[in-house]
């Protein structure tokens, strides 16, 4: 769960450009939310704040019970281990194999190698890439890379899952499987926010939504 109160964010160094203005949100545990809005609405900025990639310029941010603005760096690092993120550009490391990319979060948590291997094989089987474990990301198609990025984000069963256009490179069947998994994770207690401007998928999988436009919240409807 997370709470935002009167949060603003500006980026661009000295020539500051307001990306978010006075956003207030309260999303409880186990909820699924669409994050909607056209390009430049502030969806990615909001996800960046929630994934602790950037700090809000003003306001109060509380994620999984941790007041982010006041937290120590070590506590923020621990908090990041409970947040899974699927970035729009995937952010796979090109010099690591698919196996090592997906195993990365577990290795940073110092899990045992046997356990890591078991988890990676299970999740890669689920995303249908169990035969590509030794491939490098650049040897994969866009859709395959997206599935690897999704596998890396969910392998450690995060308490908060953030996804930026996660179905962009997926076909309809794979998108359906992904949405089913998101709903299953939400039932198990994971709070999920999925940013998209794909109206078709939103209509097909109706759920509460947060809508942004020009950095302002248009509505938070359920």
């Amino acid at each position: 769960m997370f709470r935002l109160h009167d949060v603003s964010y500006a980026h661009g160094g000295s020539a500051r450009v307001a990306a978010l203005s006075h956003i207030s949100l309260d999303v409880p545990q186990g909820e699924f939310r669409w994050l909607l809005g056209p390009s430049g609405a502030g969806k990615s900025s909001l996800l960046s704040i929630l994934s602790l990639e950037v700090q809000a310029s003003a306001g109060m941010v509380e994620i999984l019970g941790v007041p982010v603005m006041q937290a120590r760096r070590s506590n923020l690092a621990r908090l990041r281990r409970r947040i899974g993120t699927v970035w729009q550009d995937f952010r796979l490391l090109p010099d690591l194999s698919v196996f090592d990319n997906v195993a990365l979060p577990l290795r940073l948590q110092h899990r045992a190698e046997d356990e890591i291997a078991h988890e990676v094989h299970a999740i890669m089987k689920w995303v249908g890439l169990e035969n590509r474990l030794d491939a490098r990301p650049l040897q994969l198609s866009g859709g395959e890379q997206q599935r690897v990025a999704i596998a890396r984000a969910v392998i450690y069963r995060p308490a908060l899952l953030l996804a930026d256009e996660p179905t962009n490179a997926l076909d309809e069947r794979q998108a359906g499987r992904l949405m089913a998994m998101f709903h299953r994770l939400a039932e198990l207690g994971t709070t999920i926010v999925v940013a998209t401007h794909n109206d078709a998928i939103v209509e097909k999988y109706p759920a509460p939504a947060i809508e942004l436009a020009h950095g302002h919240m248009v509505r938070d409807y359920r």
Partner: peptide, 16 residues
């Protein structure tokens, strides 16, 4: 820097 930023965002401590 890209790899560092990624593992930082996955929860790697500064000390690590």
């Amino acid at each position: 820097r890209q790899a560092i930023a990624l593992i930082h965002s996955l929860g790697a401590m500064d000390s690590y």
